[in-house]
């Protein structure tokens, strides 16, 4: 079994800390992820709104490349970005469910010498960590358990719905299980799968930011040290607009928002820089018990 890694555009820019921490954690677990060569943008949600068949073709090229890369072996394509994960799954599914789409995509791929037979398994890192690596191995790799740290796991939308099968779309637990294995306390809260506002934070701010604000407000009310995310857009929305939010809603909004991989890496005693901690606008809040135990800072 090969596990290929599909970063997607965000993990190379705004979500670099996600890529850095993800790769570091998987390396520490001796579970190597190999980046899919020559990958292209998945098409994301914006493309769907203009030309859906082209959007599917964009995603399908990546699937074809991954399948080719497997040389007949089963290939798993790990997509950490929620949007990439969803688009790849959707393409895979719709190619089968809607014959005209399947045919159009196959024809287009054929025109450039590619072929996709539907053999790639699309996986989210949460899924891989729980089902392939296993909590036992993760617990064994934890050198600095996050005792006293209270975290709100925020899964967002597209990681858990509508196509994912590895967790419950209404009450997912994989991230909670993972962070609990790292010694942290996670809270049961109603915002786990509520929308952060997605691209509306940039396009229709008053709508988008209200979503992010309501989620952060609830996290603060529940007294958590940090919100853990599994999506670069969620992380960006929740973290980067706290200033404007505070002004807009006349409420001091301050909350650490980190990728779940950064938090796991921390528990494994990985170096702050390796985990991209320096890229956060708001440093990950240290519970008193953990202060002074990390490698730098």
């Amino acid at each position: 079994m090969r596990f290929l890694y599909y970063p997607g555009c965000s993990l190379k820019s705004s979500g670099r800390a996600y890529e850095e921490s993800l790769l570091a954690v998987f390396a520490r677990l001796q579970f190597p992820l190999e980046e899919l060569p020559e990958w292209n943008c998945c098409g994301a949600t914006a493309y769907m709104g203009i030309d859906e068949k082209k959007a599917f073709v964009l995603a399908a090229r990546n699937l074809a490349l991954a399948e080719q890369h497997g040389d007949g072996q089963p290939v798993h394509l790990v997509a950490p970005c929620a949007a990439c994960y969803l688009v790849l799954l959707k393409t895979q599914k719709y190619m089968v469910e809607y014959k005209p789409i399947g045919r159009a995509i196959s024809d287009a791929l054929k025109s450039v010498g590619l072929k996709y037979r539907g053999q790639v398994k699309i996986r989210h890192p949460l899924d891989v960590l729980i089902k392939e690596v296993g909590l036992e191995r993760i617990r064994a790799a934890v050198s600095r358990p996050l005792e006293g740290m209270k975290i709100a796991c925020y899964y967002g939308c597209q990681v858990v719905r509508p196509f994912a099968e590895f967790d419950d779309p209404h009450d997912p637990m994989s991230m909670d299980d993972l962070l609990r294995a790292c010694g942290a306390e996670t809270v049961d809260w109603p915002c786990k799968v509520r929308c952060c506002g997605a691209m509306l934070t940039g396009t229709v701010e008053e709508v988008g930011q209200r979503r992010s604000y309501m989620i952060l407000h609830e996290a603060m009310r529940r007294g958590v040290d940090a919100v853990a995310t599994a999506c670069p857009l969620c992380q960006f929305n929740l973290e980067c607009f706290q200033g404007p939010m505070s002004r807009r809603y006349r409420d001091q909004v301050e909350m650490s928002v980190a990728y779940f991989t950064q938090i796991v890496g921390k528990a494994m005693g990985l170096d702050e820089r390796t985990l991209g901690m320096h890229r956060l606008f708001i440093p990950l809040r240290q519970p008193p018990a953990l202060l002074g135990t990390s490698h730098d800072c």
Binding site: L58, A108, S111
Partner: peptide, 22 residues
């Protein structure tokens, strides 16, 4: 993107020229 950028463009062009697929 690294590598075969032409391939991607060809792919998108193909979709443009084969409107019957849409």
């Amino acid at each position: 993107m690294s590598g075969n950028k032409r391939q991607l463009q060809d792919l998108l062009d193909y979709m443009d020229t084969h409107k019957e697929l849409r």
